[in-house]
Simulated scan of single mutants.
Amino acid sequence: MEYLMCHIEKELFGSTSEGTPVYQYTLINKKGSIAKIITYGAILRELWVPDKSGTLSDVVLGFDTLQEYEKKNSHYFFGAIVGRYANRISRGRFSIDGVTYQLALNDGDRPNALHGGVKGFYTRIFKAIPMKTPNGPSLVLKYLSHDGEEGYPGNLDLTIVYTLTNSNELKIEYTATTDKPTIVNLTHHSYFNLSGEGTILDHELSVNAYHYTPVDENLIPTGEIVPVENTPYDLREAKNLGEAIDPLKTSLTKGFDTNFVLNGKCGELKLAAVLKDRKSGRKMEVYTTEPGLQLYTGNFLDVKGKCGRYYSSYSGVCLEAQHFPDSPNHSNFPSTLLYPGKVYHQITVYKFDVER
């Protein structure tokens, strides 16, 4: 039974260690699905969608409290908007128009910049504007990243719009402008588990990609773009994730931590992946305008999450639509440069349905 109208609620979620208030917005669409988003990191904390019997479950991982997000999320990035540059940059170094910039190396023992830095967007407080639209409830989130923040040049004016559509899509639209040449690569970092419990090893996944970018011992792309055919990365046809992960368990990554080169044109909305859970009947299709999809199967999860649930390896899967890792250092990769007068724009849609 459909709700008569969409609904938005606001409540105080807590205050940061510096005393800044953080608010949680609850979006409810006409079908009764629910998304809960906080202004800290523009984090999607909860996403409740129906199974084949109509029962709602929360299908994303996260924490119960703001303090846990502050203390622990630099290791996991649960539900966050990641930037200014998602994924890895080798040696934390890149050049624009002959000027070299150095970022913090925050990727553990690897000499890389990761997910925007020590205080990337996943730690920042966004200004929120709730909106009711014909398509469903929306939350507009704004943040101004100042010139030099985490080593990146230019004042970056960022807008994120979450919409929980009345057809059970979570649509995320990103827009950014700069006053100085910079690099931008944004993504959404939810870990999905369509069963709402256990692991994702019984999920099925297909990825709409004929190629991927292999990496070196520091998980930095070699610069090659190679076919997935006859490799463990061939997910063109749906595969059980447990079976797909198995040959990778002895690898450096212990599972997928892989950038796929999506079929279709960069800038045009296209199908990127389909994730299914046969038990619940839930299906999630991912559409994006981005050229790449980083698949991460939660290989090193080891933390207590929401409602006392323990998240171990493979408790969730990330499907991060983005540009390729280390793109500023590979001229053959799609460019992540943004110049004054130009607009960064991306749309990614997570569409939910059920199969009975």
Score class of each variant (00 low, 15 high):
N106C: 10
T159L: 02
V215N: 07
T288V: 06
S53D: 15
L56H: 13
E320H: 00
T297L: 01
E229A: 10
T222H: 00
V82G: 01
S315Q: 12
V82E: 02
K351I: 08
G341R: 08
P134V: 13
H189Q: 12
Y344M: 09
C318R: 01
K52R: 08
K10L: 08
Q322H: 14
V226R: 10
N329M: 07
L301N: 05
N185K: 06
P247S: 08
R84N: 08
I81A: 04
R278G: 00
A273N: 05
I125N: 05
L44T: 15
S95M: 05
Y152N: 09
P232K: 02
D353W: 09
K171F: 02
Q67L: 04
P221C: 00
Y3Q: 12
I34T: 09
H345M: 05
D277H: 03
A128H: 04
S17T: 15
T250V: 10
T178D: 04
L337I: 15
V228H: 06
Y40Q: 04
C318V: 09
A244S: 03
N193Y: 06
D326C: 09
K276N: 02
E70V: 14
L301S: 07
K180G: 00
V49A: 07
N208A: 09
C6T: 08
N332R: 00
K10M: 07
K283T: 12
G151V: 11
T178N: 04
F13N: 08
R309H: 13
L114P: 06
N259A: 15
N259M: 08
H115T: 14
E68I: 03
F63L: 06
L44P: 13
T348H: 02
S145V: 05
R45A: 10
W48R: 15
D157E: 14
Y314S: 07
E237V: 00
K72G: 04
L205D: 06
F333W: 08
T39M: 00
Y233V: 11
N168V: 03
H115P: 10
G79Y: 07
F260N: 02
G79S: 01
S33C: 15
L4A: 13
G62E: 10
V59G: 01
I34Q: 08
C307W: 12
T55W: 06
Q102N: 14
A321I: 01
S138W: 01
V354E: 03
F324E: 09
P291G: 05
N208G: 00
I8L: 03
G136S: 12
K30H: 09
F94N: 05
P130F: 02
Q346F: 01
A86Y: 04
V354C: 09
Y310P: 02
I183Q: 05
E224F: 05
R309D: 11
K304I: 13
L271F: 05
A176W: 14
N73P: 11
R93G: 01
K52C: 13
G281K: 01
T100M: 03
T100V: 10
Q102G: 08
L295Y: 03
S167R: 13
T159A: 06
V99E: 13
Y143G: 03
R124K: 14
R84Y: 10
R88A: 01
P111G: 06
N29L: 02
I43A: 05
L158C: 12
G264F: 11
N218A: 06
G196R: 05
F300Y: 09
S53M: 10
L338V: 01
E18T: 15
G108L: 09
E237H: 01
C318H: 02
W48E: 09
F352G: 12
L156Y: 11
Y350K: 05
N230Q: 13
W48C: 14
A272P: 12
